[in-house]
Amino acid sequence: MPAARTERSHRAPHSRALGLRFSLLAALSILLLVIDYRDNHLDTVRTAIGATVYPLRVVVDAPVSVWRWASETTASRSDLQTENERLHSERLLTHARLQQLSALEAENSRLRAMLDATHRVRDEVRVAQIMSVSSDPFRHVLVIDKGSRDGVYDGQAMIDDSGVVGQIIQTGLLSSQGILISDPDHALPVEVNRNGLRTVALGTGKYERLDLPFLANNADIRVDDLLVTSGLGGEFPAGYPVAVVTSVILNPQESFAEVSAKPVAALNQVRELMLIWNEATEEEVEARNQDDAGESEEVQDE
């Protein structure tokens, strides 16, 4: 009676082994949590599992890509023409600004040379597609389609056409995870563009709001001030727009003003963003890699 046997095998309780396995797996999970929270020694494991998730992401992303492709191919001729005209005029404008920019850049580097300051290099920029946004509402994390194979590195800055979006926190081979500046865990060193006042912009968990909690009541900051990256954290290149101050609340009883700002990048609408290769950091990375290689050679020698 094979049917009866399978029924019984499904029903047979195996509670002792189950309890033991449960305790083991729970303990292992807690161990992983602690290791991951203390320091990130699990990056290789994450990358390996991430590789198995990659095909799923591609499949999940397929309807959106197909929809975009279909709407592009079926777009009417007049739509395309108007878009073409718009892009043409935009291109003219940006070109005009670029001409000025190169003159300004030359002037800037001349002035910097006169002041004996270090040269500001032009950053290399490349476009990446967003594959998915974190489905965990507690974290503002997204996945892009560029990985270590394309030269992406941890801590790399991500921007869109209007401002800073976030930075890379974990690189896989083909895709990487980035954290948005609005994530509650993220802090970004910024300065007020008007007067160079330095502070830190903290994420709040809301896409439209950053907090600047460390400004004294007498700090020179106003509504509509533009905040740009200061480059002092070492991760972000300096001078990219971050947010515009939306409210300054002064409370004489507190020692700090309550300042909040709205990110200029459309954090929850981007589908494409740009990665910045900052030359200094890339050199640092290379130097670090060489150090690592040297160390491993030494170990081999021993």
Partner: peptide, 19 residues
């Protein structure tokens, strides 16, 4: 797998699901 896919602490969803 869910932890990696959602970028949460490693082991968080694993512990909750196991329980």
């Amino acid at each position: 797998i869910l932890d990696v896919a959602q970028g949460t602490l490693f082991g968080q969803h694993a512990l909750a699901l196991v329980l």
